[in-house]
Every structure is written in structure tokens, then in C-alpha cells.
Design a binder for these strands. Structure first.
Length: 215
DNA sequence: AACTCGGGGCA
DNA sequence: TGCCCAGAGTT
């Protein structure tokens, strides 16, 4: 199936309709806690991240409080998230940098965010688009996979998909489309066994395994 | 572009 | 057991 611009628009319309009430799955109360939760979410399910942050953020929700922990203490706090050594190192270094260079606040500029240890394009775009509503699509594994399957934005690298998505998604929806695509990837368009028979986009998805009589 | 970090969930 | 999970840094 050739994916026309009209089909892409229809895909987005249906995604918006079905996931209208989709909210961020990660628990956070501020830019800093969203930043930390997003770092913890790397290669880890959001359910597990929420278990860790639920007991972490009531006590440690600012850079100033975070840097009072030692490396090994923080590793113990986030152990269940996996990749805990590098994550703990990054979170501590990031907190120190926020205090020294940004007055303890999280900068809103993309170029400043990605200077922070442990923060790449994906994490920077999450904080900007989800918390502050800035333009920018965060491309994680779900967004990458679903976008490629739908033909919404094809690319061999996350950056190519990010640029492609920004051409087809209206600016006002960039923070929301991030959630539509993630929820769709979680609920239906799984990595290993996509449930195409349950998918409300199977008739206009070039990767669908469902047979359709009409083309 | 490929490799590494990493414990837990699930087939 | 083997593969996967809301990635980023290094080589």
C-alpha cells in the first residue's frame, strides 16, 4: 500500500480520536522529576519506573536534594529500573550541572537540555513537548516502530523519523502525538506480535497482516 | 553503525 | 534460554 498524504492524515485523525484521553504514563510533578523519570525509563517498562519514582520523588524532587545522595545510595534507590549504574551517575552529574549552571532549574532550550549528562534528543523532546508544550517529537522505540509501520514517517534512524513526523503532524499536536503513538505501540502495535486484527488502522496500514478485500 | 549497560517479564 | 523494555554514551 502506498501511503498518501491523505492516509497519513486519516491515521492521525483516528489515533487522536482513540487516544484522546491518553496521558503520560510516567509519574512526575515538575520538569526535574519528569526529566529524572524519563532517564529512568530507558530500556525499562513505565510500570517499573512508576514504582521507583513513587518512593523516590516524595523525598527527592529537586537537584539540591538529589545531590545529597552518594552514587551507591542512588543506585540502590533506582536499582529496579535496570542500567542503574550509568543512570545514577548521569542523574547525579545532571543535578550538579543544573545547580551550577542553571540555578537549580531545568532549562527550556533544547540545545541546553541535551548538554545535560544522560539527556539525548528523546528525553529533551519529552520534557519540552510534554511539560511545556514546545514543538518537537520525542522518538523512542514505540514511536520509531509505529511510525515506520504506518508509513507516517519512515527512516532507518530515530532522527530521520523525528524529522519526518514533524512534517506530517500539526504543531499543536506534537506533545500529544507522542502519547498517541506510544499508547498504540503499547496496546496494539507491539514489537514482536502486533495485533493487527484488533487495530483500528489495519485498513490503512501498509504493514498490516490483516487481509482486506478492497484496496 | 555497532556495542554496552542490566534487571525483570514473558513465552 | 532468548528476546524485549518510553536510550544515551563511547568506540
Amino acid at each position: 500500500m502506498r501511503v498518501t498524504k491523505a492516509i497519513k492524515k486519516e491515521q492521525l485523525r483516528r489515533l487522536q480520536e482513540v487516544y484522546r484521553d491518553a496521558r503520560p504514563a510516567l509519574h512526575y510533578t515538575s520538569p526535574f522529576t519528569l526529566l529524572v523519570a524519563t532517564i529512568l525509563s530507558a530500556q525499562c517498562t513505565d510500570e517499573r519506573v512508576n514504582v521507583v519514582t513513587a518512593r523516590l520523588f516524595p523525598r527527592l524532587d529537586t537537584p539540591e536534594k538529589m545531590v545529597q545522595l552518594t552514587q551507591s545510595e542512588l543506585e540502590g534507590e533506582i536499582h529496579d529500573c535496570g542500567l542503574f549504574r550509568s543512570k545514577a551517575k548521569h542523574i547525579l552529574a545532571m543535578s550538579h550541572m543544573l545547580i551550577e549552571n542553571y540555578g537549580g532549574e531545568v532549562p527550556e532550550e533544547f540545545d541546553e537540555l541535551i548538554k545535560l549528562p544522560g539527556v539525548g534528543r528523546k528525553t529533551a523532546n519529552v520534557v519540552r513537548s510534554v511539560y511545556w508544550g514546545y514543538p518537537g517529537i520525542a522518538v523512542d522505540t514505540h514511536v520509531f516502530r509505529v511510525s515506520n509501520r504506518l508509513g507516517l514517517a519512515k527512516g532507518s534512524t530515530p532522527l530521520e523519523v523525528e524529522m519526518g513526523l514533524q512534517k506530517v503532524i500539526p504543531i499543536k499536536d506534537w506533545g500529544h502525538a507522542h502519547h498517541w503513538l506510544i499508547w498504540h505501540g503499547r496496546k496494539i502495535c507491539h514489537a514482536r506480535k502486533p495485533e493487527c486484527e484488533k487495530c483500528f488502522l489495519s485498513d490503512i496500514c501498509p504493514s498490516s497482516t490483516v487481509q482486506h478485500s478492497k484496496k
